[in-house]
Design a binder for these strands. Structure first.
Lengths: 102, 102
DNA sequence: TCATTATTTCAATAATTGTTGAATAGTTGT
DNA sequence: ACAACTATTCAACAATTATTGAAATAATGA
């Protein structure tokens, strides 16, 4: 993974609101959630939620699919997996023993 | 790991400058580097470097130790290890198969 | 002690990011 | 076509974060 991609992921998750959105969608798995459900669930005003969903989607943390008049959002689990691999390399540089865990 | 800790780590690494600093110090391992070496190595003005070192240190990504008139900084590898564990849980929530990798 | 070196703090400013209500665009069911 | 519904964009503003040079702090060595 390129460093600038990693930075964009860190930016995406560097807000408590966005981390909450992402964690919620991870829990929902392939079902995902439509925007209104997320807004209700996390009690975020629609305009503000849109702002954060856009940021997350642009940085590929989320995917979005139109479903009638709804927009269904899903977490990009693969990207998280790639991030973990990136961090493991960074973290283990010269110290592999620290990263062999559960 | 508490969510607010994870957010603080993401904030710390959400700047290209700070990610460069952290990656550089990870490479150096226990030796670490004194502030001036980091400034020279990454070509960052001292005041600006201080600003970012302070942010990283406050969020526990780095440790700092005085050494004569130098300040020696080291990466907190254990925290990265904890972050990887946190992400693995978040990422694998209901989808463990995605996170079993190298 | 005094000049030198290393780093941080301060103050000013620039740049970016977050929040909100109103307006807009697209979709559905009647 | 029209009313109701979902979500986004827009514009204004608030809040936070980043950058810089000058000054301050602290340690060293002559």
């Amino acid at each position: 993974m390129e460093n600038y991609i990693a930075v964009s992921i860190f930016e995406s998750l560097s807000s408590g609101v966005r981390l909450d959105i992402f964690r919620l969608l991870i829990k929902k798995g392939f079902d995902g959630m439509v925007a209104g459900e997320i807004a209700t669930s996390l009690n975020i005003p629609p305009t503000n939620l849109s702002f954060h969903l856009k940021a997350l989607t642009q940085n590929r943390l989320l995917t979005v699919e139109q479903e009638g008049r709804f927009q269904r959002y899903r977490a990009n689990i693969q990207l998280m997996s790639d991030l973990i691999a990136y961090l493991s390399e960074e973290c283990c540089n010269g110290h592999p023993e620290h990263c062999l865990e559960t």
